[in-house]
Amino acid sequence: MRIFADRLAEHLSKSLQPVYLLFGNEPLLLQESKEAIRHTAMAQGFEERHRFGVDTSFDWNSLYDCCQAMSLFSARQLIEVELPETLTAAMTKELVALADMLHQDITLVVIGTKLTKAQENSKWYKALMVNGCHVNCLSPDQQRLPQFVQTRCRQLGLQADAQAVQMLAQWHEGNLLALVQSLEKLLLLYPDKQLNLVRLEESLSRHNHFTPFHWSDALLAGKAKRAQRILRQLEAEGVEITILARTIQKELILLTQLQSQARHTPLAQLFERHRIWQSKRPIYSAALNRLSVTRLHQCLQTLAQLEIVSKTQYEESAWPLLHQLSTEICMPQVQFTKA
């Protein structure tokens, strides 16, 4: 079973699974999911809670002792296991063994960062998922974020019109903790619980947080305005231009390889070969439809010029070239002309 974190409360109201796998990159969703499971488990008699943080020196026997503490008088246990970002072969072997030790008096919660496709196909993951529920705690993407905002408003009794929802999503992208704080503030400011653009502009400021990967995803998708908006914010925040150049260089080289290989190999097969996430394939397809090999080489030339300026012309800013490159990557092919 797989669910998004914002559906966990609904799920828990119906049943409590023996195993929960909380994986993602959003601290707020991870914390709220843990708390929701704890509350439900306690209500169902899981009075004893144990927390373990796994690292290379972790004593797995201490965890196994909890699982094997079976008697008429022992309490039902909630066991939380936090995994490191990188799992060793020894750790995965112990996780398989852990799955075999679970019983009806244990609810196991495993917490970790975003999983790769290979990890989701691994033996330890499949062993835990036999009686488990995977709770997706990834930050909502641009498409899901408005729905997430609407759900949060509804939970608080706030009635936000469509424009208010879009503004809340745009102003808090990548920063869900700030979104929760903003909604709580609005709840206090407006007892009638009605939200519109005017009230938001009077009461809030932007709290969105972007990474270089938000920018590269916007470029791949051809969303020129969004890419420029993200780039301006990254520039204002003092992000090193070298980091952005390396990020997009990697994407341009990958697109060049895909474009060349697509002449002889189906695109789906290439995506598998280059380990491109299923969720990212639509934006790579959009980029490949828009960017020919010739155009990709031209973009790489602009990138090379940017690198020369940033490393040799210390009195000249390279940011205008990065904005130019951003525009070139997003342009429909018929509108593109080389300077």
Score class of each variant (00 low, 15 high):
208 N>Y: 11
225 K>E: 13
236 A>W: 06
253 I>G: 08
210 F>W: 10
234 L>Y: 04
244 L>C: 10
220 L>H: 04
237 E>W: 04
236 A>R: 14
217 D>S: 01
240 E>G: 05
256 T>I: 14
238 G>E: 00
219 L>K: 08
233 Q>P: 04
253 I>W: 01
223 K>H: 15
225 K>C: 03
252 L>K: 09
207 H>G: 10
248 I>H: 02
230 I>M: 01
254 L>H: 10
245 A>P: 02
240 E>C: 08
222 G>S: 06
219 L>E: 05
257 Q>M: 15
209 H>L: 13
213 F>R: 07
211 T>V: 10
216 S>L: 01
227 A>D: 00
223 K>T: 08
253 I>S: 05
216 S>M: 06
230 I>F: 00
255 L>F: 14
208 N>D: 13
237 E>P: 06
233 Q>I: 08
219 L>M: 15
247 T>S: 13
245 A>D: 01
225 K>T: 12
234 L>S: 05
252 L>N: 12
250 K>M: 12
207 H>A: 15
220 L>V: 09
235 E>A: 06
219 L>Y: 03
225 K>H: 11
219 L>S: 04
253 I>E: 03
220 L>M: 12
241 I>P: 11
257 Q>H: 14
237 E>Q: 10
250 K>F: 11
249 Q>P: 09
218 A>P: 08
215 W>I: 03
214 H>L: 00
217 D>M: 03
207 H>M: 14
208 N>V: 06
243 I>P: 02
211 T>A: 03
217 D>E: 06
244 L>N: 03
254 L>Q: 15
210 F>R: 07
231 L>D: 00
245 A>E: 01
224 A>S: 07
229 R>T: 14
210 F>P: 07
223 K>Y: 14
226 R>G: 00
257 Q>K: 15
213 F>I: 06
